[in-house]
Design a protein around this nucleic acid. Sequence first.
DNA 1: GGAGCGATGTCCT
DNA 2: GGACATCGCTCCG
Length: 186
Amino acid sequence: MVAKNLLGKLLTRKFEGKTLIGRIVETEAYLGEDDPASHSFAGQTSRNQVLFGPPGRAYVYFIYGMHYCLNVSCQPAGQAGGVLFRALEPVSGLAEMARLRRLPPGASPRLLTSGPGKLCQALAITRAEHNGINLTNPDSDLHIADDGFRPTRIAATPRIGISKAARLPLRFLVAGSAFVSTTMRP
DNA sequence: GGAGCGATGTCCT
DNA sequence: GGACATCGCTCCG
């Protein structure tokens, strides 16, 4: 379960000489061609080809005309499957994140990255810049780091914001975190 | 605190 | 033409 293992790891973004860091507190798994809710359900297309590529790559897509969402591919080349980053706990570079989110300085950290669209805005993640990059390479502008932290309690809940197969318990979050994407916490 | 809704680009049928 | 893995604003309590 890659989605579960990603919880507690750090997402590091180098941007204009600054380093922005968030700890992953919420993820959602998409299974691939057998999952009706997955972008890869209808087979490989130019949009989702990253999901069919090698694992550890960023799949960034644009949704609802105004938001980006960040996924990481997690199956061998030839198989689809990915994990959506739904929420981060801001760790470093909060002032810069607030600026990118166009929030006043000193806005609540909970507003910065508590949702898939928000975290992309806070880390200046775009499809043009980041789709297809290797998230496991520490030299990437955007990559996943591990500082050894492991959340003590992990909860699984139904997936959010989708209409098909939403009831499968494929959403994972750090239990008790104040930074997950909804007020409905177990 | 929560329900309702509009904004808006890209891709697929 | 319509669906869409969302957000933030408006209303209402």
